[in-house]
Every structure is written in structure tokens, then in C-alpha cells.
Computed example of a mutant assay.
Amino acid sequence: MYIGGHNMFTLIAGPCAMESEEICMQTATEIKRITDKLGIPYVYKTSFDKANRTSISSYRGLGMEEGLRILQKVKDEVGVKVTTDIHESWQAEPVAKVVDILQIPAFLCRQTDLLVAAAKTGKTVNVKKAQFLAPWDMKNVVGKLEDSGCKDIMVCERGTTFGYNNFVVDMTSLVEMKSFGYPVVFDATHSVQKPGGKGTSSDGNREFVEYLAKAAIAVGVDALFMEVHPDPDNAKCDGPNMVKLSDLEGLLTKLVDIYNAINK
């Protein structure tokens, strides 16, 4: 799929982990309504399994079989492209039969076998930059995908580890990764996460999402990634950094204004 160039930024958004078919359909339908109204291309995202949770007792999702069924339903009934993340090489082929974009989690962005398996599906591959990598180090990640035959690559900034339980975002990393020649995505919600900040789960600062997203649009990213939930305070995963669904239209309206001002 085509993202970037002189097109309006794309929104990749949905709940962190799948909690129910009802929540998935509700969020996809409402985000589609909002993005259609504002002229923003939209890709629905949610995870059938969150394999890197803080605690072994943390909620992970609905599993691959049920997750792919729901993603297919979202595609068919809401009429949007979909993406989800994979954690193991064997998942690439079955997941690629449903999704339009395969997402590689930040912790796994240097896993060669996972990258090669994703590349061989022929799908778009969106790789999140690890929290411990410099932006120029992602050139090697891109090289693994290119050498494995992948022609449709996206790279995603999600913040860099800064001390304990904290991330910072260096906006120049977006410019650095743009030099690779592929679309750059900014993950506005994981960038405000505080991993392990609650001891057995992550914390976050949802109130800062707007400001980082504004800065990223001004820098010129091709897509924004946001996790969105109808009731993030009671979500089963990443609630403290997710955007509340009812707040999304107001936020995106501001971001479109910034995009239009920059791209007159």
C-alpha cells in the first residue's frame, strides 16, 4: 500500500490488545467515520497477542485464530486496511493472509529470522525502532528486509529509553530515518509510555500525546500510530498512554490544521 509522498499523513490506530469483537468493531467504525470526515487515510491496528507484557499475569489478547477472524471482519464490514504485530517467524505467513501491513515490535526489530519471514510474505512491513537503538542503526534493519526481497517498508519511531521507566523522543530521528527513502511513522502513544512504571504493568502520560504528535506532523512524518480505546482507564493493556476515542476527532482536527499549514 502507498503511504508517504505528498499525501495527507496516514493514521494507524486502534486498541492496544484485542479485548472483544464489540470493542474492535466500535473503534474501527468510529475512527473510520472521523478519518473520512477529515480526509485522513486510515489503517486499523490491534494486537491478537501482546507477547512482551510486563508481568506473566498481564492480559495478552484473544489469540491468533480469533484475532485474525476479527481483523477480517473489520476489513470486510468497516472497509479499512488492517495491521497487527507478529512475534514469531511462523506467524508471518498465516497473518499475512489477512492483514495489509505486518508490524514488527520494537523489541524484535533485530530478529533476523522474523524480518526475513515477514519480507517473504510480500506484504508491507512496518518495523518499530527498538527503544535501545539509534535511528541510524535502523539502516541495518532496513537492509535485512531489502536483502530478503521486501520492497514496501515503513520505519517507526516509538521513543528511546532514557534512564529508568521513561522514554524521550528525539525529533531529529524522524529526519534521520527519512533519509532511508521509506515512509516514517511516529508512534505517539508508546512514546509517552512508562514501561513497568506501575510495578507489574506499564504507566504512561496520555496528556503528552497531543504535543508529540503535533511536533511529528510539523517535522513531516508520513504516518501517525496511536492506540485508541473507548475507555482507556479501564482497558486491559496500555490504558495510561492510549487516546480516548471521544477525544480523537478534536486531536486529529488540530493535526490536520498543522499538516495543511506546513504543506501549503
Rank of each mutant, 00 (worst) to 15 (best):
F180P: 02
V175N: 03
I153A: 05
I104Y: 05
K178Y: 04
D85S: 14
L102E: 07
V127K: 02
D113V: 04
H190Y: 04
F186N: 09
V192G: 09
L114A: 04
S89R: 15
G199T: 12
A117G: 08
Q91F: 13
F132G: 02
M177C: 10
K194I: 07
I101H: 12
L133Y: 03
R110G: 03
P105G: 05
V95W: 04
G163C: 04
G159E: 05
Y164G: 07
L114K: 05
K151R: 14
A119P: 14
M177K: 08
K123Y: 08
K129L: 01
F132K: 00
L174C: 15
L145D: 00
P195T: 11
E88A: 14
K120S: 09
V185I: 15
A106W: 01
I104F: 06
G143S: 15
L115M: 14
S89H: 13
T121M: 08
C109F: 09
V192S: 07
C156G: 08
A106C: 08
Q111E: 11
N140A: 12
D147A: 13
E157C: 07
P135D: 02
D137C: 02
K97V: 06
D137I: 01
S191N: 12
D170F: 01
E93H: 12
I101G: 09
L133N: 03
P195L: 07
K178A: 10
C156E: 06
Q193K: 13
N140V: 02
V155F: 00
T189Y: 03
N165A: 13
K178Q: 12
K129M: 02
V99A: 11
G149I: 09
V155L: 05
Y182Q: 02
F186R: 13
